[in-house]
Design a protein around this nucleic acid. Sequence first.
DNA 1: CAGCATCCCTTAAGATACTG
DNA 2: CAGTATCTTAAGGGATGCTG
Lengths: 120, 120
Amino acid sequence: MGDTIAVEKISVDCKQHLRAINDTQDLLSGKWKVMIIGCLALGKKRYMELQRMVEGIGSKMLSKELQELEINGLITRTVQDTKPITVEYELTEYGRTLKPIIDAMALWGVQHRKKIITAK
Amino acid sequence: MGDTIAVEKISVDCKQHLRAINDTQDLLSGKWKVMIIGCLALGKKRYMELQRMVEGIGSKMLSKELQELEINGLITRTVQDTKPITVEYELTEYGRTLKPIIDAMALWGVQHRKKIITAK
DNA sequence: CAGCATCCCTTAAGATACTG
DNA sequence: CAGTATCTTAAGGGATGCTG
């Protein structure tokens, strides 16, 4: 009986664990979000800068994913009153809490590439 | 001139950084891979166990994503000679190096959910 | 510069049914 | 139990052109 309770508890914990992973993944869904955040982790960036940094991204996808990130409170969008206007994107404090994830992914990617190359 | 070189170096570093992030994302692409790895991080699991743990995944997606993970050397697949046969999946040592990423995602997801709930 | 609108196409992924 | 085969759909995403 005690065992059953223990097993159920583990099972519940596991579900929550997986749900948490899923939540995170959802917020970072899309082909470019993680890279965009990776860019913004280096500091505030303008629309054009982002498009240049994130190689291959189109204007449509860039604005779409930026909007989603903004909606989720991960970045801010600030219009500069210049001529013509410029827009700056920046990670919010909350967005910065994603840094451990991004860093872990970047680090793993670097090691992985090393591994693949030496394996050849 | 020194500046130009410095800027270029930063630029190159950034590209590599983003490429690394991208590589990692590619290997974890698909709706279920991260969760599957999250399950296997708890220990070896059978096909059926995985399907029960990862709520909502269908048989087709499960085997597809497992195959991809195996191809990339992140998990092993072992057929047990029972009747009927059972198959066990397990993270490889290399697959286990993904743990920091998975953990970071799980942790963030938990915090995020807390934040959302208290915000209401 | 920053971004929207439109069109188009590929792919991911779900449902269902079947096999050794 | 551990998958495979087939079909279908929804969505993601690219290309292009246009606007304030």
